[in-house]
Simulated assay, not measured.
Amino acid sequence: MADNQAVRLEQVSRCYAAATSAAVRALDEISVVFERTTFTAIMGPSGSGKSTLLQCAAGLDRPDSGRVVVDDVDLGPLSEKALTELRRDRIGFIFQAFNLLGALSAEQNVGLPLRLAGRRPDSAEVRAALAQVGLGERAGHLPSQMSGGQQQRVAIARALITRPKVLFADEPTGALDSSSSRTVLKLLRTLVDEQGQTTIMVTHDPVAASYADRVVFLVDGRITDEMRQPTAQGVAEHMALLEADTATARVGGGE
Rank of each mutant, 00 (worst) to 15 (best):
D170L: 08
G234I: 02
I161P: 03
V235S: 10
S181P: 08
V154D: 00
G234K: 09
G140C: 02
A208V: 05
I161L: 11
L185R: 01
V207K: 14
L142Q: 13
P206T: 09
Q152N: 14
Q151H: 10
R115T: 15
Q151G: 11
Q108D: 15
D122M: 08
D177G: 13
T190V: 03
E171W: 04
A175R: 02
E243S: 11
T173C: 01
Y211C: 08
L142K: 15
R127D: 03
V110R: 07
R189D: 13
G140D: 13
L114N: 00
Y211P: 02
S180I: 04
F217G: 11
P121D: 00
M239C: 04
A175M: 07
S123Q: 14
R250C: 02
V192T: 15
M146Y: 07
R250E: 07
L112Y: 08
G234W: 03
L191D: 09
Q197V: 08
R138K: 14
A131Y: 01
R182F: 04
D177W: 07
I223H: 07
M146D: 01
A155G: 03
K165V: 06
P121W: 00
Q195C: 05
L112D: 03
A249W: 01
V126F: 09
R250M: 08
M146V: 00
T173W: 02
D177M: 09
G111Y: 05
A139R: 04
G134T: 10
V216A: 04
Q229G: 11
A169Q: 06
L218P: 10
K165Y: 02
E125P: 01
L218A: 13
S180F: 05
G118I: 05
G221K: 12
G111H: 10
A124W: 02
R189Y: 07
L160N: 09
G149Y: 09
N109H: 08
G134Q: 10
T224Y: 03
E194C: 06
L167V: 05
P164D: 14
G140M: 00
L185M: 15
N109A: 12
R222S: 15
S144I: 05
L112K: 10
A117S: 15
F217S: 11
Q233M: 09
A247V: 02
L116E: 06
L142W: 09
S123L: 09
G174N: 10
G134F: 09
L167F: 04
V166A: 12
R163M: 04
R250S: 04
D122Y: 07
M227Y: 04
V215E: 01
R158W: 05
V110A: 10
E243F: 01
R228T: 08
A236N: 04
E137W: 03
A124D: 15
V251Y: 07
E171K: 02
A240K: 09
A208F: 03
V216K: 00
V219N: 13
Q152E: 03
S144N: 15
D170E: 07
Q229R: 14
L242K: 06
I223T: 14
V251S: 14
D213V: 05
T199P: 05
Q229E: 15
S123P: 05
Q152L: 12
S181N: 12
L191V: 09
A128T: 13
S144C: 13
D245K: 14
M227N: 05
P121L: 00
S179I: 10
P206W: 05
Q152T: 06
G111I: 01
A209E: 10
D220K: 10
I156E: 00
T190F: 04
D170A: 12
E194Y: 04
D177R: 11
A128L: 07
R228Y: 03
G111S: 11
H204E: 08
